[in-house]
C-alpha cells in the first residue's frame, strides 16, 4: 500500500525521468491501488446505460509521465489513472446519463467541457471520489468522439501539441472551428428535442441556437423564444438550421482532411 505522500514522491521521480525498474513496479502497485478503490464504479456505469463502456485499467506509464511533466500536478492528483469511456448518440443522452450517474455515484465532481472546452475538446467528465481515489468517466457524444479521435490522429501525424492548443496554426484553428460547429449543431438538436418533448431549454443551448439564427442580437430571452417555438414555421426553421450546421461540420471535416494530405 502506497501512502499519498509516497505516491507524490514517486510522481516527482517519474517527472524527473527515473529509469529505475522499482519505481515502475511501484507505479503498478499505485495503479492497482486506485483500481481496487474504484472497482465499484464501472458496474454502476454499465448498469446506467445501454451504450458501450470500455474501462481503461491504468493509464499508460508514458501518458502518466507526460501528464506529470506537462502540468504542475502531483501523481495523486491525476484523476484519470483509472477511468472509462462511454459513447452516446446525442447531447440529450449525454445529459440524461450524466444526471443518472450523478445520482448513483458518491461525491461526483462534474467537469462539463461542452460550454468550456479544453483546446476544443468537448465532453462531460464525471469524477466520483471513492476512498480518496478518483475515477474518470468520460461521456462523449458520437460527434464529440469523432472530433477527439481526429485530433488524436493529427496530433500523432503532425504535432502532438495540437492536443494542447499548439501545433500548426491553420490546422489548430480548423479543428477549433469544427469543435464550435459541432457544439452549435448539438445544441440545436437538443433544443429541437426539448421543444418536441416539452422539456426545459438550457441557457447555453439557447445562446448557441440564437447566435446561429440571429448573430449579434442578444435582446431576446429564453421566455420569448419559448413563445416563438409555438409559432408556425419556427421549428422547421431550426430544423433547416440543423441541416445547414451538419453541412458545415462535414465540410470542415473535409477541409481538415485535405489540409493533412
Amino acid at each position: 500500500m502506497l501512502s499519498r505522500s509516497a505516491a507524490g514522491r514517486l510522481g516527482e521521480r517519474l517527472r524527473q525521468g527515473t529509469k529505475d525498474p522499482s519505481d515502475f513496479a511501484e507505479l503498478v502497485v499505485y495503479c492497482q491501488q486506485v483500481k481496487l478503490a474504484t472497482a465499484q464504479v464501472l458496474p454502476i456505469v454499465r448498469s446506467a446505460t445501454v451504450a458501450t463502456a470500455v474501462d481503461r485499467s491504468g493509464k499508460s506509464f508514458l501518458s502518466i509521465v507526460e501528464k506529470l511533466r506537462r502540468q504542475s500536478i502531483r501523481l495523486p492528483q491525476i484523476q484519470d489513472i483509472e477511468g472509462c469511456r462511454v459513447i452516446v448518440d446525442s447531447r440529450s443522452e449525454q445529459d440524461a446519463l450524466s444526471l443518472r450517474l450523478q445520482a448513483l455515484l458518491a461525491d461526483p465532481q462534474v467537469d462539463d467541457r461542452r460550454a468550456n472546452p479544453t483546446h476544443g475538446y468537448r465532453a462531460v467528465h464525471i469524477v466520483p471520489r471513492i476512498g480518496g481515489e478518483r475515477y474518470e468517466i468520460q461521456i462523449r457524444t458520437k460527434l464529440q468522439h469523432v472530433w477527439a479521435q481526429l485530433v488524436e490522429l493529427w496530433a500523432e501525424k503532425v504535432d502532438r501539441d495540437l492536443k494542447y492548443g499548439g501545433g500548426p496554426e491553420s490546422l489548430a484553428k480548423s479543428l477549433f472551428v469544427l469543435s464550435e460547429h459541432i457544439n452549435q449543431l448539438e445544441s440545436c438538436e437538443v433544443i429541437l428535442f426539448n421543444a418536441y418533448t416539452g422539456q426545459d431549454i438550457d441557457d447555453a443551448d439557447f445562446t448557441a441556437l440564437h447566435d446561429s439564427l440571429v448573430p449579434g442580437d442578444d435582446s431576446e430571452t429564453i421566455a420569448s423564444w419559448f413563445e416563438r417555438l409555438e409559432e408556425p414555421g419556427i421549428v422547421p426553421r431550426i430544423s433547416s438550421l440543423v441541416l445547414k450546421l451538419k453541412d458545415d461540420v462535414l465540410r470542415q471535416f473535409d477541409e481538415i482532411d485535405r489540409a493533412g494530405r
Partner: peptide, 30 residues
C-alpha cells in the same frame, strides 16, 4: 503506450478506443 482495457468484446474497444487497433484502423473508423 501500454494499456490495459476491459470490455465485453474487441468490437466495443473499436467503438471507444479505435487508435489501439492501429492508426490505419483509426483513419478508417473516422
Amino acid at each position: 503506450e501500454i494499456v490495459v482495457l476491459s470490455a465485453e468484446s474487441k468490437a466495443q474497444v473499436l467503438k471507444t478506443h479505435a487508435k489501439y487497433f492501429g492508426r490505419q484502423t483509426l483513419e478508417d473508423s473516422l
